[in-house]
Design a protein around this nucleic acid. Structure first.
Lengths: 108, 108
DNA sequence: TAAAAAGTTGATATATATGGAAACTTTTCG
DNA sequence: CGAAAAGTTTCCATATATATCAACTTTTTA
């Protein structure tokens, strides 16, 4: 997690992406039904917002860029551990909400 | 998914668990940071609320009760596919929300 | 309190998620 | 356009998640 030379993202770089709103004001939030397909897209879009290449994200986690590519295009299923690892590296919080539909549950 | 003899959960059974509130009024919702430990507990608590045994839940999915036990006590990591399968059987909706912390992202 | 039901654990087999390496394609930019 | 950077894909190895079965422990209930 700790690196020697830190290059903090400049405000100008930020302005390019988030016009007007600054700092704590603007907080991007993605919410969606848990699906494999969407998850990959989300990783990609968060990574983009962090202005990272697949290679950079990979090195934060300790994997090759090809691995990131695979996760983003999810050709495969994913484990929770991987999800946590990726979003932690992206300094992004992940919440899971579980909502029971109705009381009409029935058993055989 | 389709079974011959359906035994719908009676309202009385429900009242035991959800005092006062009836039907669509009361909807249980669990929300938590995505963590392995909590997830297992959640499966268990939703299953209990559905008044199912591990064996019954297992048969809905097509696995043995021992497998459900392991998921609930999660001795292991879990894949998204498994999460989806379990909660679908429990007629429970699963949402994932992803929130970016700040703009203070830094790269080496 | 004994039997039945529910849940746990360990051994084991199999499927598949993770990951690297390298070649390849696509995008970016001088 | 042509080179560099970024992203993708294929082949492959390895770790591990899924799952069963059977024996065991714990809980429930008649």
């Amino acid at each position: 997690m700790e690196k020697k030379k830190l290059k903090t993202m400049t405000l100008d770089q930020m302005k390019d992406k988030h016009i007007g709103k600054v700092g704590t004001e603007k907080r991007d939030k993605y919410e969606f039904d848990l699906q494999l397909e969407i998850l990959g897209e989300t990783i990609k879009s968060v990574r983009k917002e962090r202005n990272l290449t697949q290679e950079q994200l990979g090195s934060l986690i300790g994997v090759q860029k090809s691995q990131i590519s695979k996760l983003e295009r999810n050709t495969k299923n994913v484990t929770i551990e991987t999800i946590l690892k990726v979003f932690k590296a992206l300094k992004t919080n992940v919440k899971l909400s579980v909502q029971m539909n109705e009381f009409d549950f029935e058993i055989a």
